[in-house]
C-alpha cells in the first residue's frame, strides 16, 4: 500500500511542476518525475506477497510463488524509451534557448524557430 502512495504522490508532484512552473527545464524535470512514478506504479501492481523474482535459477522455485513478470517487461523498455525522449526534449530546450536566450515560457512568444 505504501508503494501505491509513493507512486501516486510522485505522479501528482510531477504534474504540479508541469502545470505551474514557467521554466522549460523545470517542466522537463517534472515530466521525468511523472515517468518515475508511473514506472513504480506498474511494478507495484504486479507484486505478489512472499513471492520471488520471476527467474527459474533453482529447481526449488515454483511458478505459483512468483511475481507477475508482464509489468516488469513493460517497464524495462519504458525506462530506456523515457531516457531517449527526455534527451530529445532537452535538445529542443537547448535549441530554444539558443534562439530566444531565455527559458521562461512567458517570454517565448513567437512560434517561429
Amino acid at each position: 500500500m505504501l508503494y501505491y502512495i509513493g507512486a501516486i504522490s510522485l505522479i501528482l508532484i510531477g504534474m504540479y511542476a508541469v502545470l505551474t512552473k514557467k521554466n522549460l527545464l523545470k517542466i522537463v524535470v517534472g515530466l521525468s518525475i511523472v515517468d518515475s512514478g508511473v514506472n513504480l506504479l506498474f511494478i507495484s501492481v504486479g507484486y505478489v506477497k512472499d513471492a520471488t523474482a520471476p527467474i527459474f535459477s533453482m529447481p526449488s522455485l515454483t511458478a505459483d510463488k512468483m511475481v507477475d513478470p508482464v509489468p516488469q517487461a513493460l517497464v524495462l523498455t519504458a525506462i530506456v524509451i523515457g531516457l531517449a525522449t527526455t534527451a530529445v526534449a532537452l535538445g529542443l530546450v537547448i535549441r530554444l534557448y539558443d534562439h530566444h536566450k531565455t527559458l521562461n515560457i512567458n517570454k517565448i512568444r513567437q512560434l517561429k524557430w
Binding site: 508503494y3 501505491y4 504486479g46 507484486y47 505478489v48 506477497k49 511458478a63 507477475d68 513478470p69 508482464v70
Partner: peptide, 16 residues
C-alpha cells in the same frame, strides 16, 4: 486493487 494479491492473467501462463 489490493496490494500484493495474486491475480490470474496472462502472467500466470508465462510463468508456467
Amino acid at each position: 486493487m489490493p496490494f500484493g494479491e495474486k491475480r490470474e492473467g496472462v502472467g500466470k501462463y508465462y510463468l508456467e
